[in-house]
Write a protein that binds this DNA or RNA. Structure first.
Lengths: 167, 167
DNA sequence: TCTATCTAGTTCAACTTTCAAGAAAAGGTC
DNA sequence: GACCTTTTCTTGAAAGTTGAACTAGATAGA
């Protein structure tokens, strides 16, 4: 008999534990670092900044809410609150979707774009300093492959998976 | 003249952009994944679970608040709230530090240890499924090195750095 | 000693995120 | 069309986090 719930747990090896710990430390510190950098220089957390970046790269600087949530890997609820806040700042506005009356488009305003242009150089520099300047080309390549693998693992093709933007 | 604020920004290359995006996607999905797994199976977010793990591995199952914050890479404020919540659950209790009257020890209770033993197998399994089962040995090794490098970069030896637990 | 400064930890208010519930439109089936 | 289900997005309350202010005790220098 070997069901998941009763079989002996496959504990992590010493190396795996060290890697897992290092992963948690690094990601926690990096998130804290960029949140602070952007709160200071752009007046918003990193997640919100990422939303503006997405919008700035979308055709006509606008995107359907669910699509934006999918790109950002967050729930629609979280996105609703975030967009409400960014709207209050004047960096985004909402717009009814012409083809689907349930739908909303989030639109990056001129002010939003300006804010983005102002803060982008500083943020890119911070990303460089904290990440790319510290890794060899080979490590960057490897990190990309690893992260793509892990992300794909959590959002498989077919998908009955519990994805944030479908919740 | 080449000051940080006026020189042309060193934008990310296409590959760097892809790696950065993949990093954000993977870490966001992983955090969401483990937070949900632990909220479901242990009734607490991943950060809180990590605190119990730390305490369980500390001598006499206790640790000074600031020390715990340093290990978890979080602020003392955040830790105060977290411990208050865990105390309400009966999994941790506070204890005055004998040698420093300002100090507090967070102590893992028997109930806390029991809860940890109950939920550890499921969590380890989740970590395996989402991370280690998907990577080659070489990738695991590489990930460890990369994450150690990035973490060290944000908390250098000497240190005038803006570290969460010193704020 | 007296005083200034620093460290440990907590607290409050503001902000962000989650979770569950709900309104409104779309899509499918008979 | 009438009915049921699904999709889209929002809301409100509870939980978690942040940043600044604060208390109390430790530390160091005159």
């Amino acid at each position: 008999m070997t069901t998941a719930s009763t079989s002996a747990p496959r504990w992590l090896t010493d190396e795996e534990q060290r890697v897992w710990r290092a992963y948690l430390h690094a990601t926690t510190l990096l998130e804290d670092h960029f949140d602070r950098q952007l709160q200071r220089d752009a007046g918003m957390p990193h997640t919100y900044y990422g939303l503006l970046v997405q919008l700035s790269q979308a055709p006509r600087r606008r995107m359907r809410m669910t699509e934006l949530a999918r790109n950002a890997k967050i729930t629609r609820s979280r996105l609703s609150h975030a967009i409400a806040r960014l709207e209050k700042n004047g960096w985004v506005r909402r717009e009814d979707c012409p083809s689907d009356k349930r739908g909303q488009n989030a639109v990056l305003t001129d002010d939003g774009l300006a804010m983005l242009r102002r803060s982008a150089p500083g943020h890119v520099e911070a990303v460089r300093q904290a990440m790319f300047d510290r890794l060899t080309d080979e490590q960057v390549r490897s990190l990309g492959e690893i992260m793509r693998t892990l992300a794909t693992g959590l959002e498989p093709e077919g998908t009955d998976a519990d994805l944030p933007w479908l919740r």
